[in-house]
Design a protein around this nucleic acid. Structure first.
Lengths: 337, 337
DNA sequence: AAAGTTTTGGCAACCGCTTGCCATGCGCTG
DNA sequence: CAGCGCATGGCAAGCGGTTGCCAAAACTTT
């Protein structure tokens, strides 16, 4: 009968201490601060520990030391494949550093974010918040009481890692302009998305420079299903190219176009953001701005760990911007005449 | 400067106790066992707590009580989109139950699985292990010392939830047979995969009943890239239909076929397992056995929680089998003559 | 050889919360 | 009105580690 719970006879440092003929504090030191103890004693302790099958209890260790070797990652919507890259990267890096990763879904809600941070605060060494929906003020406030690293979001003074949007979006517009497109429609995502706002901002700027007109419609839920409505709305605008908030939406547009007999890219070019799983094998394969999101997760975890270990000292690189590149595939083509 | 660490001035039950004019133990009871305390006192304590912004420290609570309200989920390869369903389902259900979820990648390694369980044992209330690569014996042994629920794996006496394979595979074979296929090739996945073994088992059984010949080739890594080699090998066998270990592999096959100018389904029918994200918009859309993996995650968490709360009493449903259904799409068609 | 350093290990006080046990005081029964 | 039981709150001992401080031991240094 599975118990494994407290009092489960799992050996403690006290058992090891008796077995090795030393005091518990020596065992503790031997395990976590070997420099402080004579090498021979350490060896004896280690030997006793392995003999007994001792494993240190992370909880008990964390309580007095305040160090949990656990990191939390919150994503705004765990349903969105975009975040899988971030999750993977973070998980991988955390594991490499001997840390455990907690993954949470905040369901697009700033309240859930704040509540979770408050709740988990003492249990983790820090938080990675991807695509936070909280306000700048709230983030700043929370970052005063907790170690926080933002992903896909920038707030002054708060460490963050984002994928370059300005340059990437410029490439999208250039690509489209060179194909003869003169009218672009942007399919907006969630209203609270900082990233979405930046993408639109960059798009209008770049469009202006290239003499291309850009309009925004939406918001649409950033999902495959949302792409249906987005496609219909986009087709109504007369634009020859649609730039979607993200790939999910873009692929949804692709599907809706296929249903309606609208040829992509002959009738409409479609561009997405993120290069998610599937973007290269949907039909037609999607032209999209590929960001290194796995790298984002990794970097964010690194920064968090650095903050923890350098204990308060401001990290060297506080606001990281990762490069992006345009993956040109078959969903974009010459503008219809 | 973000600290938020121990000694961070976060109020404790002692502060609340003083504020409310009661003893710490009363505060503790008021928070976690209100029946034991006079209602008026509880109200006073609650009020003091909110006034101070008190939040209970999960670590400190877990240490003496042995209850962490945290669950761990391990997947054999976090890179595989198949698991995203499980992760989502588990995360969602855990959150609904007020639990925190730890997600870990065991990298197809039984050792990593065992080590992680050992390490995290005291920090969690139980484990969900998806597609465990451990041996039956090892699982049985571990399940004696920890609360364990298996997903996509069955071991006698250990709680588990799987998606039906026998019936589903029968449907695949029937579908193929009715399209005139007489020779099927199974593209095997990882050698240690229990699920893979069951699928192949069911396939030969069903094929036998329908007078269809079935052969197995592989193993192939269950990835898109693995599909390239698998496709080439499959085409060499002369079979008219390929059933892949999973959708990742199947989509890889689709891509390779497209590259080689092999028409799907005209020259070769392709079937996958899992109905992952993308299976419905790849080209051609993939016929696949859809399982309710999100439901698997949810159910597994439910079982775990039930085990914890009914404290050792054997769960009512110990080995859950979820239904599957064949999603027939365009990657299968009549056998070439 | 005496005095001064450094190592090394033990003591005991925590970290913040839970819980078994006891003392109090009240309401009730007879 | 004595006697009893129960609801209520406090005390204190943990849970399994960490760590500041001190004393003994082992080395150096004059």
């Amino acid at each position: 009968m599975a118990t494994g719970r407290a009092g489960s006879g799992r050996p403690t440092i006290y058992h090891v201490a008796k077995e090795a003929g030393v005091s518990p504090s020596t065992v503790s030191r031997a395990m976590s601060n070997p420099g402080r103890v004579n090498a021979a004693t350490v060896a004896r302790v280690i030997e006793a520990a392995t003999r007994l099958g001792y494993r240190t209890n992370p909880l008990a260790r964390a309580l007095p030391s305040g160090r949990t070797d656990t990191l939390a990652l919150f994503v705004s919507d765990i349903t969105n494949p975009h975040f899988f890259g971030v999750i993977r990267g973070a998980e991988h890096q955390a594991r490499a550093a001997g840390c455990t990763l907690i993954v949470g879904d905040t369901e697009e809600s700033p309240e859930v974010e704040a509540r979770n941070i408050e709740r988990l605060g003492p249990s983790v060494d820090g938080f990675v918040i991807a695509a936070s929906r909280m306000s700048d003020e709230e983030i700043t406030k929370l970052s005063a009481g907790h170690r926080l690293v933002l992903v896909s979001r920038q707030v002054a003074e708060v460490p963050s890692v984002i994928v370059d949007h300005a340059e990437g979006t410029r490439q999208i517009v250039e690509h489209l302009a060179s194909l003869g497109h003169r009218s672009i429609v942007f399919l907006a995502g969630p209203p609270r998305s900082w990233l979405g706002a930046r993408r639109w901002e960059s798009l209008t700027a770049a469009a202006g420079r290239h003499g291309v007109s850009a309009q925004r419609i939406g918001p649409f839920p950033p999902t495959l299903a949302g792409g249906g409505a987005a496609a219909d709305a986009a087709l109504g605008t007369g634009a020859t190219a649609a730039v979607a908030h993200n790939d999910l939406l873009a692929i949804g547009v692709l599907r809706r176009c296929a249903e309606r007999g609208v040829a992509v890219p002959e009738d409409l070019s479609v561009v997405g953001y993120d290069d998610i799983f599937g973007a290269d094998f949907c039909s037609p394969p999607l032209t999209t701005l590929a960001g290194q999101f796995q790298e984002s997760g990794r970097t964010a975890v690194d920064m968090l760990l650095a903050m923890r270990d350098r204990h308060g000292a401001r990290p060297a690189r506080n606001q990281v911007v990762l490069p992006s590149h345009l993956a040109i595939r078959r969903s974009t083509g010459p503008a219809p005449r």
